[in-house]
Amino acid sequence: MNKSMNVFVIIALVMLSGCFPSNDLEKKQVHLTGITMGTVAYNIKYIEQPIDGGTPIPSDVVVHQNVERILKQLNQDMSNWIPDSELSKFNSHDSLSPVKISEGLRRVIAESIRLGHLSEGKLDVTIGPLINLWGFGPEARPEKAPTQEEIAQAQARTGIDNLMLEGNMLTKRIPNLYVDLSTIAKGYAVDLVAEYLDSISAHNYLVEIGGELRAKGFKHTGELWSVAIEKPVSTERAVHQIIIPKDNAIATSGDYRKYFEENGQRYSHIIDPDTGKPINHKLVSVTVIHPSSMTADGLSTAMMLMGPEKAYAFAEEHKIAAYLISKSENGFIEQFTVEFMPYLK
């Protein structure tokens, strides 16, 4: 579905009226905040009381400590910025022999490979050399855009088919393959925290890490959790569309926040594995709703790489709840699939 619109509302996260399944609407809501993955902020809100008088939820201090422990372990498993992380060690070794990996890393790699094949290679977690080449990885940004020869050399070290997973054994097909999970790891972090909250009977929550979210149930006043899709501009923070994700995750990918400019040319942090260069098309934002934040995160990135026409066709074909914003001479054009309609305000 397509329509053109001009947007101007200001807000980033809102709560809309709903109906809490209890006569006791005012319940204590805990709000935990912190930093993970070096510079990524997180916000976690949950209702302290368990549903139907179940097992008491641990104190907010204990919950916060456990969340920190979960996120710290995730960083140690799959950060490219920590030299001795599990993923960094895998990237640094040049053996073609299988390597046993942790369950967390296995889950993320498995979904990365699945989505890579589903998107016909657009989501490719092996494009780390290209990300580094363009200055969006752990290495410093180059003084100028790389040459075509440098891009070709980096592309030779990539390819999702060069990464093979069997059980918990991970294998490189080329010795200098480099895996970067930044397109999906934040979503997985959200899922881990949500799974932890479910395990302690905190079934009403909103988990947000670096802009990726997952919601369940209601807030303490009996209102539904709702979120806003941001207007895709770099000059301000404003709302484009308010949605109600219900018991789902929501992930948005866009090219309007992280980029650099050189000689009047803007270079997005989203690198197309086919060209080896930052994307350059009219699609500026993709939002996906899915039960898994990890999957929503990966799908939104894959679709950003496709461009507006292919991304919308892909979402329709695979029945993905997706909301696309493209730029035009007359403002923004939005598209959303039938599967996304139930979540619109």
Rank of each mutant, 00 (worst) to 15 (best):
E149L: 13
Q153E: 13
Q153Y: 07
Q155D: 03
T158D: 04
T158E: 03
T158V: 02
I160S: 03
D161K: 15
D161H: 14
L163H: 05
M164G: 02
L165H: 08
L165E: 02
L165M: 05
M169C: 09
K172M: 00
I174L: 07
P175C: 04
Y178N: 13
D180W: 13
D180E: 04
L181E: 13
S182D: 09
S182R: 12
K186T: 02
K186L: 13
G187H: 04
G187P: 04
G187V: 06
Y188T: 03
A189I: 05
A189F: 11
V190S: 04
E195D: 15
Y196L: 01
L197G: 00
D198C: 05
S199I: 01
I200R: 00
S201V: 01
S201G: 02
H203P: 00
Y205S: 01
L206V: 09
E208M: 12
I209T: 08
A215S: 15
A215D: 07
K216F: 00
G217V: 04
G217R: 09
T221H: 14
W225N: 05
S226Q: 05
S226Y: 10
V227W: 06
A228F: 00
E230Y: 13
T235V: 14
A238W: 11
V239R: 08
V239W: 12
H240V: 14
H240T: 05
Q241I: 11
